[in-house]
Amino acid sequence: MLEECYYKKADEIIAGYGKKPSSLIPIMQDIQAEYRYLPGELLTYVAKQIGISESKAYSVATFYENFSFEEKGKYVIKVCDGTACHVRKSAPILEAFQKELGLSAKKHTTDDMLFTVETVSCLGACGLAPTVMVNEEVHPKMTPESALELIHELRGDRND
C-alpha cells in the first residue's frame, strides 16, 4: 500500500483535470512527473475516480512509452537516436553511458536510483546532433567522452 500522501496528491491532480475518462493521460503524466514513475496502485485509484475500468487504464498506460511502473533514477538520461543523431553517431554515446553505469538494453536504472538511461527519437535539436536530454535539459553535440564527463558532473552534483 502506498502512503496516504500519494492519494492526496493524486486527488489534487485529478481535480485539476476533472473526473472524466479523457483526463487519464494528463493525470498520469502529472503523476509520473511528480514521482518519476507511475505507481500501479495510483493508476487503479485514478481509474476508479475518473470512471474507467482498471484494465483500460492499464492498457493506455502500457501503450505509451513515457509511462513506467518502475521507479526511475534521479537523472533520466535520454539519448537521442533520431535520424539526425543516428547518422551523427549516437550509438557510441548510448554505449558509453551504459558501460559507465553498468546498464543495458534491459536494465535501465542504476541500483542507487541515480541514473536511468533510455533512448528517444528526436529531441527537436537536430541541428546540434547528437543530443542527450537529462531530465528536461538538452545537451548538444555529445561525444562518448562528454557523456562520461556529464556523468561525473551529475554524480558530483549529488554530494553538494
Binding site: S53, S55, K56, Y58, S59, T62, F63
Partner: peptide
C-alpha cells in the same frame, strides 16, 4: 467491453 460492459481484459503494451 461492448457486449458485457465489463472490460475485465484489454490490450496491454504495443
Amino acid at each position: 467491453s461492448e457486449l458485457q460492459g465489463i472490460e475485465a481484459i484489454n490490450f496491454a503494451n504495443r
